[in-house]
Amino acid sequence: MTTTFFHKKRLTVLPGFKLSIGFTLLYLSILILLPLSMLFWNTMQLSWHDFIKIISDSRVVASYKLTFGTSFLAAIINVFFGTIIAWVLVRYDFVGKKLMDGLVDLPFALPTAVAGIALTALYAPNGWIGNLFPFKIAFTPIGIIIALTFIGLPFVVRTVQPVLQNFSTESEEASASLGANRWKTFIKVIFPELIPAILTGFTLAFSRALGEYGSVVFIAGNMPMKTEITPLLIMTKLEQYDYPGATAIAIVLLISSFMILLIMNIIQWLANRKYSV
């Protein structure tokens, strides 16, 4: 490794830096960096002109809009409801709370294809929920949002929950004793503390949704220009034995996700630094 990066700055008596960082870096290089670099390697078979042409094709662009739009909305829905759920789980007591707490992890544990099939069965025009609505849910962008909300929920709940759990009630008490009402206390005292966690949850849910394939293909309807998500287009290219085309689109998706995650981590880091100083 270079001397500037991954080099311990402050002296501490704790052992194992070289061991742990060495293992981490080696493992990540072999398991993540090397495989992902293959995407760039394969795309390099394309000329710059062809690359741009593939990733800016009107159908591909329509799929970006759909994928980013639905992922964003699903992440927003998750932030709203996920924060409420986390709040309820930490602060209130009621029958079945443990069960509810456990259920939140279901989307992590359930195979995405199963989730997709079950959601499609529910939200199709002849499904339990689908027939309650006068308009179509499955096979439209709304269906995609539902699948992505399902996938992303635990990310928000599980990042907000521990922060709330660790939250000291002292500042709340102080705020209350100074005469602030509950709503004001929440907005001025509690919410600012939650922002980093909410942001993390949002970013994880958002970037996870960008790449989701298994559950969405069942419920999306897959109509070109309308309900065709970007991961499906990658699959389409693969079926046509077009590896460079597939990896070109994959790179766009990968870089977007990476940037979103990086921005989040930097914000987190800035927030942490503010505390420790």
Binding site: T120, A124, G127, A138, F139, V217, G221, N222, M223, P224
Partner: peptide, 21 residues
């Protein structure tokens, strides 16, 4: 006129028969 463009033949059959679309 195509309402759902599934990725495979079996997917289409399910859409037509099970989802009744």
């Amino acid at each position: 006129n195509v309402e759902v463009l599934d990725s495979g033949a079996r997917g289409s059959t399910t859409t037509f028969t099970e989802r009744q679309i």
